[in-house]
Nucleic acid binder design. Sequence first.
DNA 1: TCACTCCTGAAAGATATTTTCGGCGCGGGT
DNA 2: ACCCGCGCCGAAAATATCTTTCAGGAGTGA
Lengths: 304, 304
Amino acid sequence: MKEIFAGGAPPAPAALAAKVRTLAPSMTRSMQRVAEAVAGDPAGTAALTVTGLAELTGTSEATVVRTARLLGYPGYRDLRLALAGLAAQQQSGRAPAVTADIAVDDPIADVVAKLAYDEQQTLADTAAALDTVQLGAAVSALASARRVEVYGVAASGLVAQDLVQKLLRIGQVAHAHSDPHLAVTNAVTLRAKDVAIAITHSGSTGDVIEPLRVAFEHGATTVAITGRPDGLVSQYADHILTTSTARESELRPAAMSSRTSQLLVVDCLFVGVAQRTYETAAPALAASYEALAHRHSPRGGTGR
Amino acid sequence: MKEIFAGGAPPAPAALAAKVRTLAPSMTRSMQRVAEAVAGDPAGTAALTVTGLAELTGTSEATVVRTARLLGYPGYRDLRLALAGLAAQQQSGRAPAVTADIAVDDPIADVVAKLAYDEQQTLADTAAALDTVQLGAAVSALASARRVEVYGVAASGLVAQDLVQKLLRIGQVAHAHSDPHLAVTNAVTLRAKDVAIAITHSGSTGDVIEPLRVAFEHGATTVAITGRPDGLVSQYADHILTTSTARESELRPAAMSSRTSQLLVVDCLFVGVAQRTYETAAPALAASYEALAHRHSPRGGTGR
DNA sequence: TCACTCCTGAAAGATATTTTCGGCGCGGGT
DNA sequence: ACCCGCGCCGAAAATATCTTTCAGGAGTGA
């Protein structure tokens, strides 16, 4: 007997479709075929043996096993078990109903419904796939950080600012950087006890990786929030938080769902830190709320 | 073959426990032990191999297989698969137990689940409450706008920037302002055919209302994205888009759900505009994607 | 074009499952 | 009380399934 059960990484409950999407880009062609079959028909796949699935996808047993490994399972046997579970869930639960893409001539009401549904899906996927161990580690680092620097450009830059705004509210020293040069300049000044966070969906945004690398080499604790955990950015990250990737279409750029996903992660970080530092966080939150009250006109209902 | 019971009956969906009880009397002692273990802890049993389950119940592999047969499965392998499904169902069944507020001592996994759930709820609420007529009107105004100015401070400022980033991608002329003075300065330059958008959750943020008022009085088309449609900001808005407000708690500031809600509205605006201006928007989107490609390191999907 | 890297599948090797087969306990007959 | 037969039970062989190894080959950059 080997591999009792628990350990560092739980295989994956039902966030399989999400995981497939997240990892698909880093897969080779044949592995993608396997992953596609698995994600497309969990129930059917669960009924197949390695050999059967290999034949179905026109690949070999080895490839199937490799795919299972990549998805986080010890082997095909375990993937199959998870698949059976997923199938059962789908069976009992309401039909997941694949949402149609947004078309150019969709009425506005459909657009609202589809976007809302997609973002909900993204949230569910992200939550399911989020590694709570990594998250916990990142929270610990932040809670005891002397100073926090967050790097992100474009859409991820806004997420970085969002995190910083939140951290500032609970009395943490935090800054966001979207200027690559200034970011590197800033990273050089970091030491142990400081935390650097890089946010990049692609995992390969040079402008963000560079400052993280510098911070890493200067001994700071580094965290990466990325949709591609196999990306270059992970090389310099002590803790990796994976965001999920949703399908995108012409009218629905990837930035949309990655942002939703990143914000959820950021919120989790924030709440985690607020919990750990409750003694100081709670009064700080109250104080910042109080300080802003007078900037709102008296009118407009106070109630609630 | 004897085939006493199985016959044409399907393996068994989830009524496994019932089946065990029904068949128990007709079982021999050791088989009962196996059946009991299976019914008692489906999840745990699903993790075991034949040998493991045999050892656990103090019986032999043969007995385990015989039990599986009696329960209607072709063999142990299939029983195990069904067991995994059952476990997954049970798991998901007790999921909705996380609707409570986030507490200081919640484990990190609960925090993730609760935040994700809350944000999903916020999205659903917002989508349901969004006035598509107002939204359509706002989209029309944006689609034919010569220039778009967006005002927002703090968290809403980030949403403003998000909208602007998106509009820029489809070739619209857009700017975000979070500096109240500059915002007003900017607002006085607006004319008809220009669009001004104010984003404020409270609906009473003076720093944002003021520029909107100025824009309104200069003849620009004005849009308010607010959680309080009865707030002061609405007085100067041609179109009002209402975001939903979720309950908040000490550890979960209102900014969190209002941001989610605002972003959904902003996404809807963006997609709506992109639809209306598809001829120019599509190439622009493609071009901006292309232009950024080289900023990502080539490496990404290699090994590991 | 050549060298190189990494993907890929065939087949060997390891595990898990199923089947076979003989032992043994238990009741009933003498 | 003893013997006989019935059928449950588990050890081990046989088979199926999964995993690993290894070498050929496609694609890529120089």
